[in-house]
Write a protein that binds this DNA or RNA. Structure first.
Lengths: 338, 338
DNA sequence: TTACACTGAACAAACGTTTGCGCTGATGCC
DNA sequence: GGCATCAGCGCAAACGTTTGTTCAGTGTAA
């Protein structure tokens, strides 16, 4: 009862012509007579012929599929990214093979392997927090499978990436607090190993320098982004000899943790500025005054564009790709309205 | 320079044996001598042989890939669903092909077609709001491609699905408000075409009847789930002769819209109870007292389990599947803490 | 008439893997 | 010594499609 899909071969038999003729006819090949073409196409649509993609993939060595490896699909930042990726890929007739690393380096490596074996045409990756070796990506390069990184970029040369420059946003953030009259501003940063932490620190320092203020290293506290880590960082900052009256914190989660902790344990009002990853922040209680927007959907879309471009560019000679896409999107401070 | 992946054929040539022997050796086939097996496996790992999955897919007519079609990836409900799906599939060595319908029936149909051509082994679907014909799913059944629906289920017979029973949660919700002393309780429901709306209404009525209260149809307002629609529904309810002092609303978004509107335009305090789709609700302002939890991750995980089960069950005779999985998860009221 | 060009179609190889079957040589048994 | 058994391996087909090459037939010009 279950219908088996029609094949080109069956069409050929029914019309008493060869499979190659059928194949060409379906593609409107010039060397096929128009009579034959219309006969074939008519029968094909009657039989609801659909090409077997797996056969085509196999034959062409291409799958029209891009692999996407993200740290955590349920996070707002990445879910709006994947949404943009899927939309962009869909428009160009590509399909998305999805996986999440849960921020584990080991799993990320396994996923890269799996994607490779699935013969994805290219890969879009935002790397796991814990990833410290990058051999799995070097291997892809050797296999000529293009990879475009976005948002979380590995510190290695010769890669394509789209990232958001946190420095400008950070400068805006600090400047914003200075304009509000604050003179002692703390920074709750992420792990030192993260590139994003470095950028924030740079921006923080530059903003102070630009405003002729002294940079005090004890006003920076690194944390592991958990609630406990955040609390420890807040306590460290607030017990400093020069106590900050405002704090820039690594992201919205950290901000929310920090604000909650401050409200419960510290009498003085402290102003917060953060980095956006929660679209619903405007519905919330006790939120940072402003957040640096990182445009996840835009980053993801650009990264996908680049990847598709790479895939369809005129057969770039294997190892000699000279040009690497390095797209920087400027972050931007937005005030949170209530 | 770019390494071409090793094939079974190359291994065979290097060892002067046949490809079939190599293939069997790699699978530890009993009819291959242990000496040969170890020789082959040794060389294979030296050459970093990895089977070409597209060839295997093609050959086996299976792809070990499940297609997932969701309405909107960036929504919290579905992003936690996709996260669970990916995890569950990964454990069983399946891969996820992802697409979003953006709640468009037409796009949903195109995606089904695309997934079919990609030869996904099975499909996981939460249908678009606008979908009203279901031929595209019937076709999959004819092609013997199993489909498991979850959360948003089409109203057709003989399908596998996992859904959350909103009735029990709704009864809990209404009862909860009654216990709080409310006697006139409104319901802002979704579009009448939605199955989920029906369930909510059923639960609402049952709870009233069970508590020996009269059911007043004018206390129910349907809306299209947009902010404007919600505002209209609220206004309708609050201009009723018997003005409700509490409202059960279709979901968290509707609740937030409604609460905001009430606070601005209506003096009397109104208690809200809602249906959960926002994990961050506890960070927010002016939220419903409680929400009916629908367990997106659990639903998604169960649906994936069922699909994988279907795929690996001993060749269920095509059209004669007698048993359809119909898993109902009971919704549950949870109070929102601040 | 021959030579030649062109049209329209068939042939066949190739992609990498799995798998049913057949073959060979060795061993065991009576 | 004859025969069955069996381990160990090779052969070849099959999956569906694309595509380079060949081939037959027709038309045309010299």
């Amino acid at each position: 009862m279950s219908e088996k899909p029609t094949t080109i071969k069956e069409i050929a038999q029914l019309l008493n012509i060869s499979v190659s003729t059928v194949s060409r006819a379906l593609h409107n090949h010039p060397s096929i007579g128009s009579g034959t073409i219309s006969k074939v196409q008519k029968l094909a649509s009657e039989l609801k012929y659909e090409p077997n993609q797996t056969a085509i993939f196999f034959q062409k060595g291409k799958t029209y599929t891009i692999g996407v490896i993200l740290p955590e699909l349920s996070e707002a930042f990445f879910s709006s990214a994947i949404s943009a990726i899927e939309d962009t890929a869909y428009k160009k007739n590509y399909t998305v093979l999805l996986a999440q690393s849960h921020d584990s380096e080991q799993k990320e490596k396994q996923l890269v392997e799996k994607m490779k074996n699935h013969r994805v045409d290219g890969l879009l990756v935002s790397i796991a927090k814990s990833t410290s070796s990058f051999e799995h990506f070097e291997m892809l390069k050797r296999l000529n499978i293009p990879v475009v990184f976005f948002d979380r970029i590995p510190p290695i040369p010769n890669i394509h990436y789209v990232a958001c420059n946190m420095e400008t946003g950070t400068i805006e953030a600090v400047t914003y607090l200075l304009k509000k009259g604050h003179r002692v501003i703390g920074l709750i940063n992420g792990p030192k190993t993260l590139f994003a932490s470095g950028e924030r620190q740079e921006g923080y320092i530059k903003a102070l320098v630009k405003n002729r203020l002294k940079y005090d290293p004890s006003l920076i506290a690194n944390c592991d982004l958990t609630e406990e880590g955040t609390v420890a960082a807040v306590n460290k900052l607030l017990s400093n000899k020069r106590k900050p009256t405002a704090i820039v914190s690594f992201n919205d989660y950290v901000s929310l943790f920090a604000i909650r902790h401050c409200m419960r344990n510290h009498p003085d009002k402290i102003d917060f500025v953060s980095y956006a990853n929660l679209p619903l922040i405007n519905y919330m209680d006790n939120i940072p005054l402003a957040s640096v927007e990182q445009f996840p959907a835009l980053q993801a879309q650009k990264a996908t564009d680049i990847l598709l471009d790479l895939l369809n560019s005129p057969k770039s000679s294997p190892q000699e790709v000279q040009a690497y896409y390095k797209i920087i999107i400027e972050s931007q401070l937005v005030e949170n309205t209530h």
